[in-house]
Design a protein around this nucleic acid. Structure first.
Length: 118
DNA sequence: GCGGTGACGGTCG
DNA sequence: CCGACCGCCACCG
C-alpha cells in the first residue's frame, strides 16, 4: 500500500521532513532549522523545510503550524494563513507575547535523541 | 543539465 | 531590538 497522507513528490528529502514535523507533540513548536537538522543531510537547508511545507498537499497529516522561524515568529507567506497558524497554536496552549512572538525557551520541542544518564 | 526560486538563518550596522 | 544582505540547498521548468 504505501499511501502516505503526505507524499507530493517526496522521493526522499521531503518525506523525511514531513516525518520529523509529524513528531512534534501538541503544544510545542520547532524551528525550520531544527527540523532541517533533525531530518539530517539538510544541514543548513532550513529553506527546504519551508519549501517542503509549501508543497504540502491539502490532505496534510502534518502539523505544519507547529513549525516557526528561529525568531519564534510566524513568517508571512503566500496565502496569509499565518493568522490561522497562530490560532491553531494558541488552541494547543502555545502563548504569544504582545509582539506575536513565541517564547522558544518554553515551547520549543526537544526530541529525545541524546539521552542523558537519567 | 542549468538557472531561478524560496513558509530560513546568521551576521552586520 | 529591528531591518537588510548574503549564503545554502532541493525542487521546477
Amino acid at each position: 500500500m504505501r499511501t502516505p497522507t503526505a507524499q507530493p513528490s517526496a522521493r526522499g528529502t521531503y518525506a523525511r521532513i514531513y516525518a520529523v514535523v509529524r513528531r512534534i507533540p501538541r503544544g510545542r513548536v520547532a524551528t525550520y532549522g531544527q527540523i532541517a537538522a533533525l531530518a539530517g543531510g539538510l544541514g543548513r537547508g532550513a529553506r527546504q523545510v519551508g519549501y517542503a511545507l509549501h508543497a504540502l498537499p491539502a490532505t496534510h497529516a502534518v502539523p505544519w503550524h507547529r513549525v516557526v522561524n528561529a525568531a519564534g515568529r510566524l513568517s508571512p507567506r503566500p496565502g496569509g494563513s499565518e493568522l490561522a497558524q497562530r490560532l491553531l497554536l494558541e488552541r494547543e496552549g502555545v502563548r504569544f507575547d504582545g509582539r506575536g512572538r513565541i517564547d522558544l525557551a518554553a515551547f520549543r520541542w526537544t526530541p529525545v535523541t541524546k539521552r542523558r544518564h537519567g
